[in-house]
Nucleic acid binder design. Structure first.
Lengths: 338, 338
DNA sequence: CTGAAAGCGCTAACAG
DNA sequence: CTGTTAGCGCTTTCAG
């Protein structure tokens, strides 16, 4: 910057003014400075500036997700990036792989880089250790899961209501023996989906059969095995509600292996890629990662912008996507039996 | 930091030494400093340090991809992040959405943030405008597509050989009328895949039928329409090589609509999510995003580490994934005809 | 409208 | 082993 000033024959402050588009520079001088900057290929150093700048903004936010390679997280990421770009912000994305230690490390790394805000998918059971950063005034918004131990904005999917929608849909097609394939119970969203399943059954006057409820599934292989077992029960389910992405894939595979995919209804929670190439096409309760990301980013920027209101909990509704697998009716043969 | 020094009763430089793990501090003093730092919740400011630090490293790299939401890019991103984390680096990811203007803007934004290196999926036809940054000594590695106009490291998929593998596989199953569904010709990788298709046909002694070659497809809807048209030709293809992700999905849908999915062979370039739930399961020539990302990151860090060797072009081979759709043999009825 | 001096938080270079 | 001084590239403050 000194070089630019010298070349343009002005003081450094004038260069600063031109670079930052501040007023009180004659058009003539400004032009001279711009030419000098171009000639020297001058690029202002954002960080050096922030060091002294009044607001001290780094124009950077941090995003913590399970994995940037996870399709859901990746779409959230894209939505956040879009909002960030509008605000002239860049985003650091970090993958946690569900490791609480990584969560802390990542926050520390971003804090040292002086990010202006965080969007976090909590891994820890307790986020109270984040107070330190909140005290500093750096805003934090939780997505996907409600935070514990701190009072911050959050944007989550309507896990409970979405699960109820799925089950209600199956009940409406005559099913009463509806299996539940649940994700790890230690995950908050998994518990909410299970609760939705149970409550909807109760409201429909159906007594849940414990034999049809399997929890703590997390990958497609185990989901396939479990589904096969359920389907070969003396009294198998006539419908399945699988509460997670990979579990749904596993269930589909099991149905295909047994040749039952056109006989047993299936609704999954969370959309499945290429889910409409499978036969029958798979019906799901879809989340809205784009909207979650956008809303979370808007919350962060509102806070950065000075919004000091009470913490807001935003719930993003799911959408029932009817494609075929969820609309298979209960077999007539069983109608009489109930 | 001054506060920490005061509280610990030492000079700022001693605090600096402790924070950075430099030698020449007595264990006793170090402990006192650490305690003071903890009490004040001191977090060093990485950027302030870099301003004066000899190497001036920001410990940050920038990644430019088509979209962080794109599954291929997201996996590359994850792989790069893994390597970056090992080196204590954070990564800025930016989506370009194939917009050349965005490419320049993104580079400028990262340059102002003084990233130590770039990993770029080129959008521009000509990257020579990047010379500026290279001259500054900031390394840049291109992925997915070869750069034009600059001499830098690159890591790309073996598009040409992969396409030949796919076609050879179909030929080995008796096919001679093999359709080609190509991506936008302005994309370098699309041209390479087309070239591989044509050369492999030539080597097999097959004269390509222009009626079976469709270029400039980019989404699944148009691919579906085109595939339907091809399959209803008087002399339809007995096999299809679709050269891109979404195009493959479109082709599958068309095959399903016409009930031909078990009669016409299909091999796609690039893996299709849940491609093994479809019946028949879809055979593909898979890329290796994980390896591409890892190698690209390793190149960047080698350059950051001082490697001044000539630019290296790394080609990552594809892998033929045999799942069923590509192994459908040419119908016997047609055998006599050729 | 413009520039000189001070200082942001930190590290380099040196002197104790 | 430790502290002091200078200065990284920039913006603030304030005097022209």
């Amino acid at each position: 910057m000194r070089d630019v000033a010298r070349l343009a024959g002005v003081g450094v402050k004038t260069v600063s003014r031109v670079v930052n588009g501040e007023p009180n520079v004659s058009a003539d001088t400004a032009e001279r400075v711009r030419r000098a900057a171009a000639e020297l290929q001058y690029e202002p150093d954002l960080h050096a500036g922030n060091l002294r700048r009044a607001d001290g903004r780094s124009h950077t936010i941090g995003l913590l997700v399970s994995s940037v390679a996870n399709p859901f997280a990746a779409q959230v990421h894209r939505a956040i990036e879009r909002v960030a770009t509008e605000h002239g912000y860049a985003v650091f994305a970090t993958s946690l792989e569900d490791d609480p230690v990584a969560e802390q490390r990542a926050i520390a790394a971003l804090s040292r880089r002086r990010v202006d805000g965080y969007v976090v998918t909590p891994v820890h059971d307790d986020q109270s250790y984040l107070r330190v950063h909140l005290d500093r005034g750096t805003p934090l918004v939780c997505i996907d899961r409600e935070p514990a131990g701190i009072d911050v904005d959050s944007v989550v999917t309507s896990n409970y209501d979405g699960a109820r929608d799925a089950v209600r849909h199956l009940v409406a097609h005559g099913h009463r023996r509806i299996a539940f394939l649940g994700d790890l119970e230690r995950i908050q969203t998994a518990r909410l989906r299970r609760a939705g399943y149970l409550d909807e059954l109760a409201d429909a006057g159906i007594t849940p059969d414990p034999a049809l409820i399997v929890l703590d599934l997390h990958d497609d292989a185990s989901a396939t095995a479990v589904t096969r077992r359920l389907l070969t029960l003396p009294e198998p389910p006539t419908a399945i509600f699988s509460s997670q992405n990979l579990v749904t894939v596993g269930a589909i595979r099991a149905l295909q292996q047994l040749g039952l995919e056109h006989d047993v209804a299936l609704v999954g929670f969370d959309d499945v890629e290429a889910g409409d190439l499978v036969k029958p096409r798979v019906s799901v309760v879809a989340q809205d990662p784009d909207r979650i990301g956008r809303l979370a980013a808007e919350r962060v920027f509102a806070r950065i912008g000075g919004d000091g209101g009470p913490a807001r909990q935003i719930v993003v509704p799911t959408r029932l996507v009817v494609r075929g697998s969820g609309e298979i009716a209960r077999p007539e043969a069983q109608r009489g039996g109930s």
